[in-house]
């Protein structure tokens, strides 16, 4: 990383923003460590920790055996005893085998023990479709995490938010699940280290509009923005809300925007049933029932495992074209 000292980047990749965030936190706090499979020598399956071993050494950037439950469980113990671990799971799909340590240990320890101790750790992982990884390497499992009290859940879509929210996650005194999307690592945006707009529980209005509110997070925000630009051609002004964190969730801005526009579309790459999208939809119904001109629509991935065949994979998640179509329909 040659630009380590810079405070402003006109253009930086999502991947480099993450690396920089971990670098800067590790610089400022000697107790921050990174552990996970191939995070050190290899630099992370998606390159997010590349170069950090050379800078911080193998005491702080630690390659582990392929033992996910223990990577997370050991992070819990380290966090309870003074370290600030950033654990990396190569794929979010490995939540499957790790869920006890995430849900029964990390999430509940502060509460069960009456507030005596904290678990200040970050669990980074990446999910989503786009690489034909199939049913066990392409999932969007944020609803599993959002369902569990005790876990912060962060899913930024832009490099600047990835940077600032990862730093804040590392600083927080609670366990944070920080989810990236495999198709975002090469995406680019600006980064101003000094201008901190991102906060937990504060959504970002990516595009303002007075006709319809489109609520999304992670990679789908970018698709929603494309759709909003397309909708302009038909004189429909969509407001695009990027939630950035799902716990805490910025209900206030969701409700404000929907009350203004009276029409809402929730877009997510997770499944339809029992999902983040269904949670947001029900919040809107609870708070904006009298304002709505049309039912709130949740546009999500299919309620099926993710198929490998590229044509099926693509068809199984929300498309820009359909966001446009559904928005137009809601405007009728």
């Amino acid at each position: 990383m040659s630009d380590i000292e810079k405070d402003y980047f006109e253009e930086i990749t999502y991947r480099d923003a993450l690396r920089l965030a971990m670098h800067d936190e590790m610089n400022e706090n000697k107790n921050v460590i990174i552990m996970g499979e191939d995070v050190a020598k290899y630099g992370g399956a998606y390159g997010a920790t590349k170069g950090l071993l050379d800078i911080f050494g193998e005491n702080r950037v630690i390659d582990t055996p392929i033992s996910e439950p223990s990577i997370i469980g050991a992070s819990v113990g380290a966090a309870m005893t003074g370290l600030k671990p950033i654990a990396e799971l190569m794929y979010v799909d490995f939540f499957g085998m790790s869920l006890d340590q995430i849900a029964n240990q990390a999430a509940k320890i502060r509460y069960m023990f009456g507030g005596q101790t904290s678990v200040p750790m970050v669990l980074r992982a990446q999910g989503g479709t786009g690489r034909s990884g199939g049913a066990q390497h392409s999932q969007s499992l944020e609803s599993w995490i959002m369902h569990i009290p005790g876990l912060y859940l962060v899913m930024p879509s832009k490099p600047c938010d990835a940077y600032h929210l990862l730093r804040k996650s590392i600083q927080l005194d609670d366990p944070v699940v920080f989810l990236e999307h495999k198709m975002l690592y090469n995406s680019k945006g600006s980064l101003d280290k000094k201008n901190i707009d991102a906060e937990f529980g504060k959504a970002s209005i990516r595009l303002e509009g007075n006709d319809i509110t489109i609520i999304s997070y992670s990679r789908m925000v970018n698709i929603a923005e494309e759709a909003a630009i397309e909708l302009k051609k038909s004189n429909i002004n969509a407001e695009v809300i990027d939630l950035r964190s799902l716990n805490p969730l910025d209900k206030e801005n969701i409700i404000k925007s929907v009350k203004k526009n009276k029409r809402a579309l929730v877009v997510s790459e997770g499944h339809y049933t029992s999902s983040v999208a269904s949670e947001i939809t029900s919040i809107i119904f609870e708070h904006c029932f009298g304002d709505l001109l049309k039912p709130v629509i949740r546009y999500t991935a299919e309620d099926t495992p993710v198929p490998v065949a590229p044509n099926l994979e693509k068809e199984s998640i929300p498309s820009m074209e359909n966001i446009v179509n559904f928005s137009k329909k809601l405007m009728e």
Binding site: S132, G133, G134, A135, Q136, H137, P305, P307, V308, A309, P310, N311, L312
Partner: peptide
């Protein structure tokens, strides 16, 4: 190749 005539109709791929 993720094709219909594959062992798992292209839904599993190399890894599944």
């Amino acid at each position: 190749a993720g094709k219909k005539d594959g062992y798992c109709k292209g839904k599993g791929g190399s890894m599944h």
